[in-house]
Amino acid sequence: MPLAQTINFGTISYHPDAAICFPKGLPAFEERRNFVVLQFQDSAPLTFIQSLETPDLCFVAMPVLAIEPQYRLEVSREDLEELGLASDRQPRMGVEVLCLTIVSLGESGPTANLLAPVVVNIRNRKAVQAVAGESGYSHQHALFAQEVVAC
């Protein structure tokens, strides 16, 4: 199994099938192409998108459907072609593509970027971050909106 150096997890070994390639990088990280998708038993369903080129670049993510079970995928024709998928329909989540949402920490807690899910073609492991401009989803979807602060 190949090994990768990471700042967060030390040296990890990963299954080659877990390596994914963003042919165009991600917005703001256009030069970073090769990542590995990691899930650890003690932190599932959190998923880590770890750069294979930059040990300290790691996105924390979650399966989109774990956050929004009714999520409507909206991948542009151009992105579908980039992924090597049929461009006349949306791919099936969990069957043809893996859909992850990147988590970040806002001032009022963790948020998930549902506006731009990471979409991975399961067959060829090509990935894009698909910006769904007309979907109406937020780039800062509160993960724990229902949480009540005790007073």
Binding site: M1, L3, V37, G109
Partner: peptide, 20 residues
């Protein structure tokens, strides 16, 4: 801290890593 808040039964999927 994020993990502590997550109360999700999301099924895990295919790929896993192992810490060496």
């Amino acid at each position: 801290s994020i993990l502590k808040k997550i109360n999700s039964n999301a099924s895990s999927f295919c790929v896993t890593g192992r810490k060496e």
